[in-house]
Write a protein that binds this DNA or RNA. Structure first.
Lengths: 139, 139
DNA sequence: TGTATTTCCTATTAAATTGGTAGGATTAAT
DNA sequence: ATTAATCCTACCAATTTAATAGGAAATACA
C-alpha cells in the first residue's frame, strides 16, 4: 500500500507544479485545497525540502516552491524520498541493497527472481514519468 | 515492502513445486529447509489451502500439495491471496475498488494517474509469471 | 485399539510502523 | 512590534506484522 505520506506528498507537489507564478505556495493553502491535515503536510514538505526537491521561504509571504522545472522532477527521486526503496525486497534494491539472512543463495531464490522483474517494471514507469506528467490536468 | 508472509509463502510454494513425486510435503520439512518459523508457515499454508491453491492431507504422512500444475498457478492469484490487492491505492484496484474520501474527482487526481500505470506494469509481470517459472532452478 | 504424527483452529503478544497532534522556536514582511 | 509563515522536537493512538502457544481433529500404522 501507498502510504498517506507519499500520497499527500505527490498531491502537494502536483498542486505546486500547477500553481501559476513565482510566488511560493503556502502549506495552509495546499492543505485546505487537497484535504490534507496541515501539520502532517508540514512535515512532508519539510522532508521534500531537505531532499532538495522543494525550496522554501520563511516568514510572511513564505511558502514552498519547486527547485527545478516540473519536467525535471523524476518520479524515481520523489518516490524514493517519500516511500523509500522502490524494490519490494532489500535483496533486489539498487540503492539500499541488503542480503536476506534466511536465504543462502539469492541466485536460486524464486522470490528474488520475481521481485527483480517487479522492480524493473515499476522503475520503468517511474523513470519516464515526471512531475510535469502528473500536473497535466485531464487524466 | 513485501511482507514475510508473502515471501515465506512464495518460497514454500516453490519448494512444493520443485519436490518430486505425488507425496504431500510436510510443513516441518519446508520450514527447516527454507529457514521459516514452522508455526508461522503453518498459518500461511493454511490460507493458501483455503484459497484453493494448495490441498492438504491430515495425519501421519500428511502434508500439502498443489491443486494444479505449477504452470497453471498464476502469480496474480498467489499475490492477491498472500499480499492482498496488487494496486497500491484502493482507488485503482480492480478487485477491491474503493473511492478515496479526500479526492473529489479521481480523473483529475495525479496520484490516481500514476498508480494506474504502476498497477498495470506490475500486473503484466504477475500475469505472465507462473509457479513453474519460479521453480526453475537457476536464475 | 492405541499411539504417533500431522494438519487445523483460536487466542495472545511484542515490536514496529503509520498517521497523525502539540507546542513552540525561528525567520521575514510590513 | 506584530503578524504570518516555516522549522523542529517530541509525543501518542491505532493498526499491522510476525510471530508464539496450546490444543483439537484426523489419519496411518502397529
Amino acid at each position: 500500500m501507498l502510504s498517506k505520506k507519499t500520497k499527500y506528498g505527490l498531491k502537494a507537489l502536483t498542486y505546486i507544479a500547477r500553481s501559476e507564478g513565482d510566488a511560493p505556495v503556502q502549506v495552509g493553502e495546499i492543505a485546505k485545497s487537497e484535504n490534507i491535515p496541515q501539520k502532517f503536510l508540514e512535515s512532508i514538505l519539510l522532508t521534500l525540502r531537505k531532499a532538495g526537491i522543494l525550496g522554501s521561504k520563511k516568514g510572511k509571504h513564505g511558502g514552498y516552491y519547486l527547485r527545478s522545472e516540473p519536467s525535471e522532477v523524476k518520479m524515481t527521486d520523489v518516490m524514493r524520498v517519500l516511500e523509500g526503496p522502490i524494490a519490494m525486497v532489500p535483496c533486489v534494491s539498487l540503492n539500499y541493497y541488503e542480503k536476506c539472512d534466511d536465504c543462502p543463495d539469492e541466485h536460486k531464490c524464486s522470490v528474488h527472481k520475481l521481485m527483480i522483474e517487479v522492480r524493473d517494471s515499476t522503475l520503468k514507469v517511474f523513470r519516464n514519468t515526471t512531475l510535469e506528467d502528473l500536473a497535466l490536468k485531464d487524466s
